[in-house]
Amino acid sequence: MLRLFVFELYKLFRLRSVALGLLFAFLLPFLWALAPGLKEVYGLVLASGWQVVSLSLLAGMEFLFPFLVVMAASESLGSEVAQGTLKTLLLRPLPRSLLLLSKLFATLLYPFVLLGASFLGSLLAGLPHGLGPFFGGTGLGAGGFAGVGLLTPGEALKELLRAHLLAGAVLVPLAALALLYGTLFLSTTASALAAVATLLLMRLLVAFPALTPFLLTTYLDLHLRPEAAGLGLSLLLIYTLGFAFLAALLFERKDL
């Protein structure tokens, strides 16, 4: 099982969408650090390299990171179908659920690697602004980017790590959702589109206030609201398990 998981990881990181995603996540912070319109858009004048890290996270979580995660999870199954290797794997005496579980674990790890690449790129891009103590905030804690006084590097790092971990947890059910659609459609494009469409549809459901606390999309900004982590993380876990269970159920009797 471990070897299968390692192989799934290896295959995942060979996918074009994953390679491109990691490249974008690493390089985009350099673009943000040089962007001339930050004040107009975010009301921010960069005072510290730590703000580049949070800015990259906030910008990425708007659309790019969820999209990249959905693409990667969709392609992890879709590419195997397209090149015919899924059949080759399933001809072996291997339970289908085990194969899907390995794929799921690999795709669930990807959001954290993606955010890690963004974090690393942001730190490097932020170096010219300094990573020492500064007057202001990370945009993720009290006072937003303006902050509430002097912020030490330790406090900034803690806020940023927490936010990145929460963002990773937010992206996990999206990967599971895309994999579920992957098992249903056996196509990268169809499953990515279906996952994105589902998220857009869920966003529209805010018109039903009774449903809002239970919607996946309600917690897509959990990294900005760590106080909601208790309920949020529990629901994200339930969504992840639910999507994974449905994917395994579908895949078990899927014709190839």
Binding site: G84, T88, P93
Partner: peptide, 29 residues
Amino acid sequence: PSARRHLGAVVEAPAAFYPYLTGRENLRL
């Protein structure tokens, strides 16, 4: 699924393999 331990099969022509691995690595998998 364990019934397939008796089975060897090629179900596509040509057979599908991971193009970025060598023949030997594919067989090792």
